[in-house]
Write a protein that binds this DNA or RNA. Sequence first.
DNA 1: TAGATTGTTAATCGATTAACAATC
DNA 2: TAGATTGTTAATCGATTAACAATC
Lengths: 238, 238
Amino acid sequence: MDEDDVGTVDVPEATVARLPQYLRALSVLAEAGLQTVSSEALAEAVGVGSAKLRKDLSHLGSYGTRGVGYDVTELHRQIADHLGQTTPWNVVIVGIGNLGHALAGYGGFGDRGFRVVGLFDDGSQVVGEVVAGLRVRPLADLPQVVHPGATIGVLAVPAEHAQGVCDQLVAAGVRSVLNFAPVVLRVPAGVDVRKVDLASELQILAFHAQRRAVRGAAPVAPRLPSLAPVTERVGEVV
Amino acid sequence: MDEDDVGTVDVPEATVARLPQYLRALSVLAEAGLQTVSSEALAEAVGVGSAKLRKDLSHLGSYGTRGVGYDVTELHRQIADHLGQTTPWNVVIVGIGNLGHALAGYGGFGDRGFRVVGLFDDGSQVVGEVVAGLRVRPLADLPQVVHPGATIGVLAVPAEHAQGVCDQLVAAGVRSVLNFAPVVLRVPAGVDVRKVDLASELQILAFHAQRRAVRGAAPVAPRLPSLAPVTERVGEVV
DNA sequence: TAGATTGTTAATCGATTAACAATC
DNA sequence: TAGATTGTTAATCGATTAACAATC
């Protein structure tokens, strides 16, 4: 595959979602001074199977060497390239409440190629305050900060304001939105929305936890009289 | 399907992940005073197809009425039941930095059936402070607060401490962990971990954004001389 | 060359979707 | 009854997995 095929060949969504994990693992390996890594070892570090990893990488092109493995630095560069991380992306955060405040100060973004360049809110009490080194601006200032198509918007406003603020982001030229409000946003075609729903995550955990509890309470096997000794497992589940 | 089949019939993971969305939409409809909703209308509210919704609900049992739709209150109760939300779940948050602080104060958990019952940290400067009405305790106090198997642990510590703290959570009896640290946690069988990786979400958005940019820059169709007028679309992508 | 490990093939699995018979 | 809408079937699609030929 050609070097300049970045961005022109289809990569399955499931693969895209794993690329950041591979990238991070490679960073760790590079810092540890490793030159080369096998698909087996890298997959193990990320918690997936090696076949899946090789298949994922095959969608980006083939950067490994049979019998040897992958060059850590080279593979890191290739994946970073595909993720568009050769230059940092600008991020604006809208809604500087509890969560927005935390996101503004979150070091993890900077480490992974993002730069928070604007904080916005319309609650009169926060506007003007300095948070994580940036002065919080009113929403009306969005167009002054957003570079159309090149800025990611993070939405950390209450559910009832999310759609309205999203519309303003889109109007200002934002084409990628990370939404923390538990609502379905309607956006025009060409705008990409991802949703992080913190309460949902807990609910999914609760679903499985309850399942364990219910199953654990019920007998694992029917109690039949038996001549051979039987190990009864109670409450032990996957 | 029987009432008491809750927790005993297999529900596909993809379906489980959507149940919280359905539940929330039903809450909104119930508040709006709606008695009944069709799969078409509910699906529209959640942003999925109606066939998918009906298929999802069919895994829980069949609570609809042909020709009529679903009883809003009844369906809400059924889904809440399956999600184990008839009684609230207790949640402990470990790592009261930027993010943990925000999570402790996040109202969305309480609204959706969770109760934050403990905040923990080992950084000497936070321990003892009161955050969102709770005093931050040292990790050593975990066993005093955790009810084995019935408490969800939220991990908001730096990556390098995540595994160690996770081990302590598990030792205290936590069987469900929501992990915000960008690391792969190793846990014994029977412990359920979900990961929320904020930077990853941005990276996935960046991948698609870059793709739009690259494709937009390239000509959409080969430029051939043509007798008929041609509409050239530049930069317009899905 | 012999051993190791990739990249790819083919089989399997799970999720989505459209269509429609069942039925209120 | 006629119209509406569910629950289910069958077809399709996409993702995972194991196995192995290619090749360093």
